[in-house]
Simulated assay, not measured.
Amino acid sequence: MVWKRSPKVIALLSGLGDGTIAATHEGLDTLPGRATEHLRALMQHHQLLPPRDRWLPRFEQWIEMKLDGLPAEVARPARHFATWHQLRRIREIADDGHDTQPSARSAKQEITETIKFLTWLHQTHARTIASCTQYDVDQWIATGPTTRHAIRTFLVVCKRDKLNTTVALGHRAARTSPELTQDQRIAWIGELVTGTSETLSYRVAGILILLYAQPLKAVVRLRREAVLDGVPMTIAFGTHPVDVPEPFADLVRQLLRHRTNLRITGEDTPWLFPGRHADTHMFPDTVMHRLRKIGMSNLGARNSALNDLVIECPPPIVADALGYSHQVAFHHAELAGETWARYAGRTIRQP
């Protein structure tokens, strides 16, 4: 195998062979890198190691690197926020068996923006979070990009834990909601069904967004058994399966026969979109970047699909079929100009 020729792989395998690296998760952690993670995934797949969330240890290491070298006035509240709120929350997600990658990514942005704010507060006004004023918060938000609103969770934690009970920041409402026109949506469906702008797996992923308004994290987690190749073909996203029209159904059949990365994951992998490590699926970001490269807006496609679907069908039926909450489905119905206010299945109270 070409993989074994790498000096890093040789060092890793030699260390495991002579015992200098323990054949445990903790042992593998001493030699971080892609080769180590690939071997870890293989050992977990073959039950030589117990399952372990792959993102949680990386997040723990990231926190330590991010806080290293910061002034105490910045590091202390940042560590409090990172460990007692963010890390605790992500550990709970991991303990429940859910994917921690999206939460870890969001937490990193909030921690990064918090450190920027605390550094500015310390360097510009010689103040800490304990002496921070509402004017400081307002000035910080008003003089920078919208990403600065990510400090809101930090301020909520500060109030809860009595680090500072006098400052606050409201939710930021997006001014616009990306959306494709119906002509653009139909054109993208046609391109991905018949075109050659991308490989098969990314074309199928894109159509799942355009037809069924599926979030990328739901797309990449689809399992083979979610697809039933009957007459017609159906696919399950929520509580009941939905039809898959031709010629898209034929693309799905091709994907089932020619899934990517099977040499790495093995033929028995349950994922419709296998990843580059044993027993893993593709990462949502990988699909997002590939679709973005050909010009397709993931969020715009999803909003347009959902807005169209809730006009054609009652929102609760759409929500149950596609894995959305009823509240989200009714929200999109109202945005699309169809309230369905008197539909018998509606259970959401008016504000």
Rank of each mutant, 00 (worst) to 15 (best):
K116R: 12
C132Y: 02
I111R: 02
R58T: 13
S131N: 03
Q139M: 15
E110R: 05
A126R: 07
W84D: 13
E73G: 09
R58P: 12
A130V: 05
L87V: 11
F117G: 01
Y135E: 14
H122C: 07
D96I: 08
K108E: 04
Q109E: 12
H98R: 12
Q139I: 14
D99E: 14
V137C: 07
L70I: 10
L118P: 01
A94V: 06
W120A: 00
A78T: 06
L87R: 08
T133N: 07
K66I: 10
T143M: 04
R76Q: 08
A107P: 01
A142C: 02
T112N: 12
H122K: 11
Q123L: 09
I111H: 04
M65E: 15
C132D: 00
I90H: 05
P77M: 05
T112P: 08
W62Q: 14
E92D: 08
T133S: 04
D138K: 13
H125A: 15
I93R: 00
E60T: 15
Q86F: 07
T119M: 10
P71R: 13
H125M: 14
F81P: 00
A75W: 00
T128V: 01
W140C: 13
T133G: 04
Q109A: 13
A107V: 01
H80K: 04
R127Q: 13
T124A: 13
T112C: 10
A130M: 00
R76Y: 01
L70R: 15
G97T: 05
Q134V: 10
H122T: 07
F59L: 08
E64Q: 01
E113M: 13
D96M: 12
V137S: 05
F59H: 06
E60N: 15
R89S: 14
P77Q: 04
P102G: 06
V74L: 12
W140M: 14
R105G: 10
R91V: 03
E73F: 03
P71Y: 09
W62V: 14
D95H: 13
T124I: 08
T119L: 11
W62T: 14
P71E: 13
A130K: 01
P77W: 03
E110Q: 04
H98G: 08
E92F: 08
Q101N: 12
S103G: 10
I111K: 02
K66Q: 13
W62P: 15
L67A: 07
H85R: 11
Y135M: 15
I129F: 01
L67F: 06
T128P: 01
R88C: 09
A75P: 00
A78E: 00
T124G: 00
T100I: 06
E110D: 06
Q86N: 07
I129M: 05
A72C: 12
E60K: 15
R88E: 10
E64W: 02
Q61P: 13
W84H: 12
K66V: 11
D68C: 10
T143G: 08
A107L: 04
F81R: 01
E73Y: 07
W140E: 13
R105D: 08
F59W: 05
E64H: 03
V74H: 11
